[in-house]
């Protein structure tokens, strides 16, 4: 998780002072207690059940690793997560860039536009997408007027990606904006003064400097997307279920707590491994650059 925190605070060049935690550490107690009771204990229970139910042993894990359906679900979940990350990035980068270019008043509106869905219930938004994306919904009617479609949008992975991207976009826009607004525009002037065309100046100076924001946003969106349940359940097809839906089916439908737990543990492990890889890559790029 340190990788995430480091990416999220790129402007503050220095790390928090060490030792400052000693005297004020107790302020963390309520949060730690809450996490322990509501997160660590259930997590431990789940992990425990995954190796004890229905019989002690690694049976649940060997089932997962040999079940084509389970593995396909895991791969699908990661793929959808990657697609959602890519889509939100493509939508958010120009949006965040626009936010840094406009005046203060327009910026407030643009920020509100991002946050407004945030303040609306996830259920409401997802049902709205159901209405919009259905076979004779608004989107398909619009496509029809320009001679396209109708397309099968709902009950497809595409529909899931559309819905999840909309939900997760604020998590991409806000870190991007935070990093972009800290980039010194005179650097672009300087680059052009030295003979770089505006497009080159943007690619060679602005884009690299905005990467910490891309990293923070992409990581948040990707990890959050792995646990999505409501949106894929409503917009997706049952035979294209994501891992959270599978876990729900195992636990709620089949009462297979052990298998459900094993799937949860595998998802957690995969996420941690991916995070670790990102951290390693970041460290390598930094050391190569001789920074800090």
């Amino acid at each position: 998780m340190t990788a995430l925190i480091e990416i999220a605070s790129p402007a503050s060049g220095s790390r928090p002072r060490k030792g400052a935690g000693g005297r004020w550490g107790w302020l963390l107690l309520p949060a730690v207690a809450l996490l322990a009771v509501l997160f660590l204990v259930p997590l431990g229970l789940m992990a425990w059940r995954s190796v004890t139910e229905p019989v002690p042993g690694a049976g649940n894990y060997s089932w997962f690793l040999t079940s084509d359906v389970a593995l396909a679900t895991l791969v699908r979940t990661l793929t959808v997560g990657a697609a959602v990350t890519l889509v939100t990035l493509l939508l958010s980068y120009p949006y965040a860039y626009l936010m840094t270019m406009v005046g203060a008043r327009a910026r407030i509106w643009l920020t509100l536009l991002v946050l407004l869905p945030f303040w609306t219930s996830l259920m409401v938004r997802t049902f709205a997408w159901v209405v919009l994306l259905q076979d004779n919904g608004v989107v398909n009617q619009l496509l029809g007027t320009v001679g396209l479609g109708p397309l099968q949008l709902i009950r497809t992975p595409a529909g899931v990606v559309i819905g999840m991207s909309q939900v997760l976009m604020p998590f991409m826009v806000l870190p991007l904006y935070a990093v972009m607004s800290g980039i010194d525009r005179r650097l672009l002037d300087a680059a052009q003064g030295m003979g770089a065309r505006p497009a080159i100046a943007f690619l060679r100076v602005f884009v690299p400097l905005s990467l910490p924001g891309v990293g923070a946003g992409a990581l948040t969106v990707f990890i959050t997307s792995l646990g999505f349940y409501v949106t894929p359940a409503l917009l997706g097809s049952p035979d294209q279920a994501l891992i959270s839906q599978q876990i729900f089916t195992q636990v709620n439908g089949l009462l297979a707590w052990g298998r459900g737990g094993a799937m949860g543990v595998v998802l957690l492990a995969v996420t941690l491994v991916l995070l670790g890889l990102v951290g390693v890559v970041l460290r390598i790029t930094r050391t190569r650059g001789g920074a800090r």
Binding site: D184, L187, D189, A190, G193, G195, R197, P198, A201, L209
Partner: peptide, 22 residues
């Protein structure tokens, strides 16, 4: 002419060095 075609060097008050480059 746009700045990049003028072939003029410039030094800024706040250096304007690219922080991501050596």
């Amino acid at each position: 002419l746009p700045p990049h075609r003028r072939d003029i060097g410039m030094v800024f008050q706040h250096y304007a060095l690219f922080p991501h480059m050596t």
